[in-house]
Amino acid sequence: MDKNKKVLEGQLSSLILPKLTGLTEKNAKKVLHEVEKAIGEIVKKYAKLTLEQDKEAAKVKAKADKLKQKLAEKEAKKRKKLAKKAEELKQVTLLMRKETGSAPAKVATKAPVKSVAKSTSKSVKK
């Protein structure tokens, strides 16, 4: 960071100092001192602001990551719940198939017996 500060100070000095020509040596030294002091303050403020900006960006990114993670967890819970309901429905369907598979066989055997009994009773009455 110090290297970046020195580079920035050098760039600012090279921009400002050539425009301050025509002063006496004494006044030039005073102006040079003030310019270097001001440039130092500007560089410090610049570094501070960029650091704060980076921190803010990191906070925003962390907040977005937390939100993304929270949404992912919520979605996972939904999928798990839906999978559980699907499994229960599958089990109920299997149980119903077993019950209906055995029940029609009993109904089929009872139905002809009743019809035969009715037909014999009709013929006997006549």
Rank of each mutant, 00 (worst) to 15 (best):
residue 1 M to R: 15
residue 2 D to T: 06
residue 2 D to C: 06
residue 2 D to E: 07
residue 3 K to D: 12
residue 4 N to G: 06
residue 5 K to R: 09
residue 5 K to D: 02
residue 5 K to A: 05
residue 8 L to P: 00
residue 9 E to T: 01
residue 10 G to E: 05
residue 11 Q to D: 08
residue 11 Q to T: 13
residue 12 L to R: 04
residue 18 P to V: 05
residue 19 K to S: 13
residue 19 K to C: 08
residue 21 T to Q: 04
residue 21 T to D: 07
residue 22 G to K: 05
residue 22 G to E: 07
residue 24 T to Q: 11
residue 24 T to A: 07
residue 27 N to G: 07
residue 28 A to P: 00
residue 28 A to S: 15
residue 29 K to T: 11
residue 31 V to N: 01
residue 31 V to G: 01
residue 32 L to I: 02
residue 33 H to C: 01
residue 33 H to R: 13
residue 34 E to R: 05
residue 37 K to A: 03
residue 38 A to D: 13
residue 38 A to F: 00
residue 39 I to G: 00
residue 45 K to V: 10
residue 46 Y to M: 09
residue 46 Y to A: 15
residue 47 A to L: 02
residue 49 L to M: 06
residue 51 L to R: 01
residue 52 E to M: 11
residue 53 Q to D: 13
residue 56 E to G: 02
residue 57 A to L: 08
residue 58 A to Q: 04
residue 60 V to H: 00
residue 61 K to W: 02
residue 61 K to H: 03
residue 64 A to N: 10
residue 66 K to P: 00
residue 66 K to C: 07
residue 69 Q to R: 13
residue 70 K to T: 10
residue 71 L to D: 09
residue 72 A to M: 02
residue 72 A to F: 04
residue 73 E to A: 14
residue 74 K to R: 11
residue 75 E to R: 10
residue 76 A to C: 06
residue 76 A to R: 15
residue 77 K to M: 08
residue 77 K to R: 09
residue 77 K to N: 12
residue 78 K to T: 04
residue 78 K to F: 01
residue 79 R to K: 15
residue 79 R to C: 03
residue 81 K to I: 08
residue 82 L to V: 04
residue 82 L to K: 08
residue 83 A to S: 03
residue 84 K to C: 08
residue 84 K to P: 00
residue 89 L to W: 09
residue 90 K to P: 00
residue 93 T to G: 09
residue 94 L to M: 15
residue 95 L to C: 13
residue 95 L to V: 04
residue 97 R to V: 08
residue 100 T to Q: 11
residue 102 S to V: 12
residue 103 A to C: 10
residue 104 P to E: 10
residue 107 V to Q: 02
residue 108 A to S: 14
residue 109 T to F: 00
residue 109 T to C: 02
residue 109 T to G: 15
residue 114 K to L: 05
residue 115 S to D: 09
residue 115 S to G: 14
residue 116 V to D: 06
residue 117 A to Q: 10
residue 120 T to G: 07
residue 124 V to C: 05
residue 125 K to Q: 12
residue 125 K to S: 12
